[in-house]
């Protein structure tokens, strides 16, 4: 029987490319954009994408009525976070509304989200580091994981972000990337896997990662 893969839509930005990529790698599965709690509750796998600013993402998720269903799913179902969807899994983020110090996040993975501080630093070729970190960069696979199956170590994926996660527990880190310094670009814990990069925009190996998520049995 076909599985259901729910892409959580809490009204922030555009989920079409994530949907298209899953539809492409899993044409026989039921891929849906979930706007109701029961669509998450009835799903076999859940994908949490994200784009835009963290305070807006958290506010929209809370107001969407999907938060509780998502937290339930995070306890048992394979859950994939992408970009801001990865960052939301952490305890708190330094991306805030003016005057605030932290934005509270979902607390599913211990740690926090920080901004790149690269002002004044030069890249190897003498040019300045730019923020956002935008473009294709390599992932060092820090530990084995079924989601990495068939993806060579140091494969490049597409990034676009100004903030990055800092996990508290070293064992949660499954991928790292160098941009001014090494930062965590993929995390995993139990039934959760999450990436800072965009697999849906990372050509062949990005699609392979999504395919691996569809067959992952944590």
């Amino acid at each position: 029987m076909a599985q259901t893969i729910a892409i959580v839509d809490y009204g922030m930005g555009n989920l079409r490319s994530v949907y298209q990529a899953f539809h492409h790698v899993a044409p026989d599965e039921n891929v849906l954009i979930a706007r109701k709690p029961e669509e998450i509750r009835n799903a076999d796998r859940v994908v949490l994408p994200g784009q835009g600013a963290m305070p807006d993402c958290m506010k929209h998720l809370e107001e969407s009525g999907l938060l509780e269903a998502l937290l339930e799913a995070s306890k048992s179902k394979p859950l994939l976070g992408v970009c801001v969807g990865e960052q939301m899994l952490f305890d708190r983020s330094a991306e805030v509304r003016p005057g605030e110090r932290w934005t509270s996040c979902l607390g599913l993975i211990s740690g926090e989200v920080r901004r790149f501080e690269l002002a004044g630093k030069k890249q190897a070729d003498g040019s300045a580091y730019k923020v956002p970190h935008m473009g294709w960069n390599q992932i060092r696979q820090d530990r084995q994981h079924p989601i990495w199956n068939g993806i060579p170590d140091l494969t490049s994926f597409y990034f676009v972000h100004s903030y990055y996660v800092v996990p508290q527990r070293a064992e949660d880190v499954v991928g790292s990337t160098e941009y001014g310094a090494w930062f965590t670009s993929a995390v995993a814990r139990d039934n959760i896997f999450a990436t800072q990069f965009h697999p849906e925009k990372s050509a062949e190996y990005g699609l392979k990662l999504y395919q691996n998520f569809v067959s992952w049995q944590p």
Partner: peptide
């Protein structure tokens, strides 16, 4: 294009 090409 977006349904067939998975780059930005």
């Amino acid at each position: 294009v977006a349904s067939q090409v998975f780059i930005p």
